[in-house]
């Protein structure tokens, strides 16, 4: 059993009080999270990421499909002793201090007091909250709440860490810190499964991703495979060629004085353009290759956006 998490055909419909209000949110979510990797669960807002994570953590019940967590079914929930979960924009008891929250959560996890006394400062240091633990949570900033949330998710030294939008609402420094922490967790041999609609964060750290659109995984796999090594197009800057007519297959993006920015999407055309520029005495100032980004991949699946 080398998957940390396995979902097969998971369905979920939210029903209103009247049957007319029903909302088919998950339409057969299937994905496999291998152990020891950072796995990004990506999708636009409303795709069903949070719903999926709530099913995995036992807060919601699926209508259909299979869920296997670290080789165990949802069953009695005892597998939750081996996972850590950070909910989306986490809410905690704001009358508790950071230290009290961790103590309370530790007691729920059945961690013996002496072990907890050792563990809490270690976690506080890891999430950068050492010195703030005596402060009531109502005085915590959004980023601090996210970090104390992460600390409580790691109390039981979980094998699988599930984070719902861990970087949302944070400033660039906060996002960077969370990313570093996730990398650190992988280095410790844990599996990290996190949802995000912020593709830049995912692109930097994920080993593997799934893209969820309207309740269905439209693509899943290692990031390199999905993005490929292939270059999509080149942006070429040419100077001193005001009168030059670009060869067919080129499109002029902007002109600024004698400088022209041209986009080319085939390699032969690129060579042709460079040759022709030289022939006309213009100079090629730059050639910038563009690979497919997660964002492009993403947009190609969003309904209403044409696929390339």
């Amino acid at each position: 059993m080398d998957e940390a998490l396995l979902l097969k055909g998971v369905e979920k419909t939210f029903r209103g009080h009247l049957s007319i209000g029903s909302h088919h949110v998950l339409r057969g979510v299937t994905l496999t999270v291998p152990r020891g990797l950072i796995y990004g669960f990506l999708g636009p807002n409303g795709a069903g990421k949070t719903t999926t994570l709530k099913i995995v953590t036992g807060l919601l019940f699926p209508d259909a499909g299979e869920v296997s967590i670290l080789g165990q079914g949802l069953g009695d929930g005892s597998v939750r002793a081996r996972i850590g979960f950070l909910p989306e924009t986490p809410y905690f008891y704001d009358y508790l201090t950071g230290h009290e929250l961790l103590t309370f959560m530790g007691r729920l996890l059945g961690i013996p007091s002496p072990r907890l006394v050792e563990r809490i400062p270690v976690l506080l240091r890891a999430v950068g909250l050492l010195g703030k633990e005596k402060l009531q949570l109502r005085k915590y900033s959004k980023g601090m709440l996210q970090r104390i949330g992460l600390a409580q998710a790691l109390l039981n030294d979980p094998d699988l860490v599930i984070l719902d939008e861990p970087t949302s609402g944070l400033d660039p420094i906060g996002r960077r810190e969370i990313r570093d922490l996730i990398l650190e967790l992988r280095a410790q041999g844990k599996t990290v499964f996190f949802s995000s609609h912020i593709l830049a964060d995912a692109e930097m750290i994920c080993d593997q991703v799934a893209i969820l659109i309207r309740g269905k995984v439209v693509q899943e796999g290692p990031l390199e495979d999905l993005l490929g090594g292939e270059i999509q197009f080149w942006d070429v800057t040419v100077r001193g060629a005001a009168g030059m007519v670009p060869p067919p297959g080129c499109s002029v993006l902007t002109r600024l004085g004698t400088q022209v920015l041209i986009r080319v999407d085939r390699e032969e055309v690129l060579q042709d353009l460079i040759d022709r520029s030289r022939a006309e005495g213009a100079s090629v100032r730059g050639v910038v290759p563009h690979k497919i980004s997660l964002e492009d991949l993403f947009m190609s699946h969003v309904p209403g956006e044409g696929s390339r």
Partner: peptide
């Protein structure tokens, strides 16, 4: 309503 229950029931708490 305050979503504090998510932190509790996602732990091995029945």
């Amino acid at each position: 309503e305050r979503k504090t229950i998510y932190n509790i029931l996602s732990k091995p708490v029945s």
